[in-house]
Structures are given as C-alpha cells and as structure tokens.
Design a protein around this nucleic acid. Sequence first.
DNA 1: CGCTAAACGGACGACCTCTTCCATTTGTGG
DNA 2: CCACAAATGGAAGAGGTCGTCCGTTTAGCG
Lengths: 227, 227
Amino acid sequence: MPVQPSRNQSSPAAETAVREQRADARHNRARLLRAAREAYALNGTDVPSSTIARRAGVGAATLYRHFPTRGSLIAAAFSEQLTECSGALDEALRDDDPWRGFCSALAKVCRMQAEDRGFSAAFLGESPDDPDLRRERARAEAGLARLVQRAKNTGQLRKDFDPSDVTLLLLANSGVVQQSPEVSLAASRRLLAYFLRSCRATDGAPPLPPPAPLRLDDLYGPSHRTD
Amino acid sequence: MPVQPSRNQSSPAAETAVREQRADARHNRARLLRAAREAYALNGTDVPSSTIARRAGVGAATLYRHFPTRGSLIAAAFSEQLTECSGALDEALRDDDPWRGFCSALAKVCRMQAEDRGFSAAFLGESPDDPDLRRERARAEAGLARLVQRAKNTGQLRKDFDPSDVTLLLLANSGVVQQSPEVSLAASRRLLAYFLRSCRATDGAPPLPPPAPLRLDDLYGPSHRTD
DNA sequence: CGCTAAACGGACGACCTCTTCCATTTGTGG
DNA sequence: CCACAAATGGAAGAGGTCGTCCGTTTAGCG
C-alpha cells in the first residue's frame, strides 16, 4: 500500500523502494517512535495506542498510517534495543577473558530488562512475525552460543551449562523486573549474582536437572516451521 | 458469605448474619469456584468472567451475585492454594534437617507456580485488598522467615541470605513458568537448582549485592502510578 | 504564488469485558 | 400442594481499545 513510484528514481531500487517522504511525515514518524519507546519503557507494551499518539502530538490515524498494526509499532520501537543487545554480545566476545565477557553480557541484558519495562515484552513476549526482530534474535542467539562455548572451553563455565540457560535467566529476570522501578534494578542485580555464582565451574558440585528446551524461537509457539 | 449455617441458629449471629443459602445457590457457587480454578490454572487470571460463568453453566449475574467483584472470585479461587502453601511451610518447619526443609519448601512453591498459571498472578500480582489473602500471605511470610533463620543457624544457608530472596525466587520463577506448560516445570526445576546452589554457605564465595527491599506486601504498595 | 497530492486529525464503528437490571424460574417451609 | 422469597439468566449499559473513514490542512514543486 505505501508503495508508489516517486517522481524520478535515479537508481531504480528494489521493492523496498525508498519512497520520498514528506518532511512532516518523517518528523511525525520519529516523534511516534520516541513517544512509544518512552511509554513502553515506563509502563510496558500494553499502553493504548491512542496514548502514544497523544503523547507524540499526532492523531490516531497518523499513527496507524506509519505503523499499520500495533505489533509493527512495537517491533519498530525495539529494533534499536535489539541492535544494542547484539552489540553488547559482540563486545563481550571481544573480551580477553571469556568468563568476564560472559558475565558482562548477561549483566548488560539484565540491566536493559530492568531499565525498560517494554524490553522483556518485546524480546520474550509475543511479537508475532516481524522479520526484523526474528533476524536480530537469531543473530543474538548465535553470538550467545559462541560466548557460552568460549567460557566453557577455558573451564570457567560449568560443563553442563546449556545455552538455553541464558534464556532461563532472561525469563526469570523478566519476572523480577516487573516490579516497581525503584527495586527492580537492585533485585535484578541480586538475581544475576545468584545465577552467576552457580554457573562457575567447581568440583564436587551437585549436577543440575536437565535443561528445559528453551529456545527463544520456541517462545512464540509452533509458528510456521513444521519440524 | 461462605458460611453454611445449620438450620437452627441457637445464637443469633452478628452483622455477618449467616443467611441460609439455598441448596442450588451453594451448588452453583461450588461450580463457579471449580470452573474458575480450572480456567485460571490453564490460562492465568486474565480469563473473562463471562467465560468462567459459561464453563460453570450459570449466567453472568449468578457469578456476580456470589463474587461481587472480579478480585473476590480470584481471591476465593486461590485461598485454597494459599492454604496449601502455608501447609507446605509448616511441614518444612517440622523437618529434622533445616536445609532440607528449606529446599523442599521452595521446591513445593515453585512447583505450584509451574503447575498453576494463576498461582503467580494471585500470589504476586495485584489482588488489592482481600483480607483473607492478606492474612494468609502474612502467615506464609512469617513461616518463611523462621525457615530461613533456622537454616542459617545450622550454617547451611549462607549468612547474607535475606528473606526477601525467597520473594526474588518467586518472582523469577513466575517469569519462567509463563511459558508453555510442557517446558515450564523443567525450566522451573532448573532455575531452582541454580538458585539453591548459590544459597548454600561456602567459604570464599564472593559477596552478593545488597538485597532489594522485596517484601510481598510491597508488591501492592504505593501502586504503580505511572503516567 | 498557486496547485496537487501527500499527510493529517478527529470522529466513528466494531469489538470486548465488567457489571447491573428485571422478568422469570425454582427451592423450600408450612 | 402452595405461596413466596431466594435465586437465576439473558439482555443491556458503561467503559475502553483497535483500527478506519473522510473532510481538511499543508508541504513542495513549478
């Protein structure tokens, strides 16, 4: 629907033809994203769209023109955070000390969850099928797997640690940070400390129960892939 | 309201005048509670009341006559589970081994959370001001404090463990068990194992960050006036 | 400066949930 | 068996959110 040939396409772009947007449209789009991010961070993603439109100073129709569905607004609002998340992973992978990198990556993500109430919802909740989000998530998961393997190889991370345990931590943390902002950061830190203490490889420690098959993609249910 | 008097009240009761309930009323009340518990366990507490009424085979008005507000139905539906929870605490307190009692109590509660999706919502969520729930919760919290102290006294539980850390675990677990029932039990078990591993007192362990002021009552606290 | 289409905003309809009202049914003591 | 109040159920009101429609405004080019 939003595709319509512009006047003069110097370089005939693909289907994703970057349609020239009027300046006010671009401006309003930015205001909407900003308002959405602010509202989501404060109250989680179940903020009424009308509220976001009002706080952005635009009408409801404008919101729906830029983001045809509620989910697309959420996806757009958090694509930035997802990128930041991936960046933290990359940085952690560059750390000389694999264990320190592992810890700092988890700390970073937990902090993001604690500081932005919408983050958990966007990352772990149901964001049906936004290709951007899916791709970013897959990328993050791959980086995570490498991070885990690296820390295991040096013998610092316990051998029976499973990559899904990171998802376990994120889910647990999402429960913790649903509380009032004043305590959620402290609580999140303490939870992470408990978790990391148990992750460190030590001799004679009792074995863990088997990991639950928690992959991020599974959180959205059986989806399209039939396997 | 939930009192079933005998036909002849020798002593004229107080304001809480125990009205004789007709048999069908009692019957319907029971069916409503059963339907509510089933629906809540499966889908959490955000099931529409009309659904519960339908599944109980009664009209909407009947539901509201027995439980004037949505919250009162939730409270009634979970008062049983809360009592069971307190019972688990009492049993744990009778255990010869304080550490084993501590572990089994936490395991029990985590399992209840995993098996009943409404449990977390009723216990940790916002159930504003039902006196019954408040009382049960206070009782549970007191038992918990004793359980913790006992395990600390024997040197099995680390000294810097805080009673609020139990709340921390419950919150974390509530995040974990929001997933599909097939994995939530396994995931919950694994989370608990990680947690308990860190709770055990050991020398040379790094200190934890300070506990967050998480008391159950605070969860309803100054409310989330976010705007 | 004026024209045109892109962009806008407020009102609106569809839908959902909570809760109440009232005519009708049903249990129960006499 | 009867009468009457307790209890019931469906319909409807109130409130709120999603997404759309359409008359109006405005950017931007000639």
